[in-house]
Each structure stands twice: as structure tokens, then as C-alpha cells.
């Protein structure tokens, strides 16, 4: 389907730990809509980062598949930005942004001019010749995002990109991301453990539970392009998501207390399921 640039079907990931299979996440199915922000919310250890890396084919799936829908001849591709900016310290900002364009796989995706344009659009043009150690955390993260976006991926995956930043920078970068996403018409999947961030940014919010990771519920935030940090509707939704999230979190904590992930694979989801969710493994919409 042309409007679904990315679909995850029945994705399961298992690791071998000490001769035992450990399931990180199982039966995860997602549909990402074009030019929207999809927020994947979950407690730490629910496998959301692993899922994101699997979507970016940095990590093989044990079962299931990731489908990328190509649009008008463009090669299907995903770009990913990590929690740490991972800027190469020996390159300037400009050279860091250009890094992906030096690779044969991205030939034709951009040139010097598109690098200059994206530097301007991301507000980092004055820093073009600076080195990563001269940047603030927020600046470095914007450079990292520019490096991901400049290769023109169909879907941009963000793995807690604002995690290590202070709240003010975080808030202003969230606003900035919304602006960039709308003007560049990006399709974005953002992973976060912050309910407010998920509700504020996400056009859709999926809640993932831990041990093993499963999609518990998907909410449509059903709003236009404009976002406010506090409205009656969003705060009601926020309440609802927060309640579900706390349930999932308690499940994850109980699982950890009960002796680690191996036990969690049996115990915790059942507890969380009975407490909370009417349709445990199926994707639901509000």
C-alpha cells in the first residue's frame, strides 16, 4: 500500500543467553503511516531499541519481517539516529552531515548543496566548520539528525534522541522536530520512555510492555498539525496512556524483582495483561 511506507509483521527477536532462549520481543506488528510521527513508548528493557535496530536492519529478526514500501521509484530506505549523537570527532559538523553521502549506497541522494540546505534548515549552518567537541548536547543531536535526514530515507527512526538532554533543550528540540517533520514531510518513528514526549510528538502512540516486549495498545492522538502541550483532550489521553504505562511498568518491575528476564517471559506479561489490557497481543486503536 502506497500510504504505508513501513510495516512490521509478526516480528520476534530471541537471544541465546547461557544456552537458554530469551525473547526480547515477540509478535510485534506495526504500520507506520506516511508523513506522520509514530511514537513507540515503553519501559526500559522492553526491547524497543532492539526493535528499532531490527527495522534499520542492524539486527536480524528471529521471526517475522519488515516491509518497506518504495515510493515512485525511490529505493526504500530507513535512516536511524541513536540516543548518543555519535558524531565522528575528527570531522567537522559539515563533514559529519555529509558522511552518509560519501557511501556508494546513497549515491544521488544529495550533494554539497543539499548538505548546505539542511545545515541551514536545521539551524546549524553557523556551526558548519566546528568540531563535535565544541557543540552543546542539543546542537550535537541536531547535527546527528541532519546526518540521518540528508540521505533522504523514507522513514526516519529516532532512538530516544532527546534522552540525555536537559528539559528545556528537550522541549525546544521537540517543537523543532515537529517543525522539521512537517516542512520536510518526514515519516518518523520515535522511541521514548517519556509519556509526555510520546503524547506530544506522536500522531500515533504505541505502548510496548516488557519481558518479552509486546505491543499492548496503539492510540491515535487524532489532531491536526498544530500541537499544544496542554489541552483538555491531550491531557485526558495523557492520563489514559500514563495509567496503561504505569501498569506495564509495574509488570516490568515485578518481573525484574522476580528474578530477571527469564522469569519475566512467563510471569510478568500475564500479570500486566490481566490487570490492564483487553486485547493483549493485537494492535488496537482507540
Amino acid at each position: 500500500m502506497a500510504t504505508v511506507p513501513l510495516r512490521v509483521v509478526d516480528a520476534t527477536k530471541r537471544f541465546q543467553v547461557g544456552g537458554h532462549d530469551q525473547t526480547v520481543f515477540e509478535q510485534v506488528s506495526l504500520e507506520i503511516e506516511r508523513e506522520r510521527i509514530f511514537a513507540l513508548l515503553g519501559p526500559s528493557g522492553c526491547g524497543k531499541s532492539t526493535l528499532l535496530r531490527a527495522i534499520a536492519s542492524l539486527e536480524p529478526l528471529s521471526e517475522g519481517r519488515v516491509e518497506l514500501g518504495a515510493e515512485d521509484g525511490a529505493h526504500p530506505s530507513v535512516g536511524i539516529a541513536f540516543q548518543q549523537p555519535l558524531l565522528l570527532p575528527w570531522l567537522t559538523v559539515q563533514e559529519n552531515v555529509r558522511l552518509g553521502l560519501r557511501y556508494a549506497a546513497n549515491r544521488g541522494a544529495g550533494d554539497h548543496e543539499s548538505v548546505a540546505r539542511i545545515l541551514a534548515a536545521f539551524g546549524i549552518a553557523p556551526l558548519a566548520d566546528s568540531y563535535p567537541d565544541e557543540l552543546s548536547g542539543g546542537e550535537a543531536q541536531r547535527v546527528a539528525l541532519a546526518r540521518t535526514v540528508v540521505t533522504q530515507p523514507q522513514v526516519v527512526l529516532l532512538d530516544e534522541p532527546f534522552g540525555p538532554l536537559d528539559p528545556l533543550t528537550r522541549a525546544s528540540l521537540q517543537d523543532w522536530l515537529v517543525g522539521i517533520q512537517q516542512s520536510l514531510r518526514l515519516t518518523v518513528v520515535i522511541v521514548t520512555h517519556d509519556v509526555d514526549e510520546a503524547v506530544y510528538l506522536g500522531d500515533r502512540v504505541a505502548l510496548m510492555s516488557a519481558g518479552p516486549g509486546r505491543i499492548r495498545h496503539v492510540w491515535e492522538t487524532a489532531r491536526g498539525p498544530s500541537r499544544t502541550r496542554s489541552s483538555a483532550e491531550s491531557s485526558a489521553l495523557r492520563e489514559e496512556i500514563l495509567r496503561a504505562y504505569m501498569g506495564v511498568n509495574a509488570g516490568a518491575a515485578a518481573a525484574r524483582a522476580a528474578g530477571g528476564l527469564a522469569l519475566a517471559a512467563q510471569g510478568a506479561p500475564r500479570f500486566a495483561r490481566s490487570a490492564l489490557d483487553p486485547a493483549p497481543t493485537q494492535e488496537g486503536t482507540r
Partner: peptide, 19 residues
């Protein structure tokens, strides 16, 4: 010279902006 002051987050772009 690079003055060590944080760059402001830029305003959102015009809607018809393309890379």
C-alpha cells in the same frame, strides 16, 4: 572563530520546503 554560545533552535520551515 566560533563563539561558544548555544545556537538557537530555528523556527519551523515554510511548508513547501524540500531538501
Amino acid at each position: 572563530s566560533r563563539v561558544a554560545e548555544p545556537q538557537p533552535v530555528p523556527a519551523p520551515l515554510p511548508a513547501d520546503y524540500r531538501i
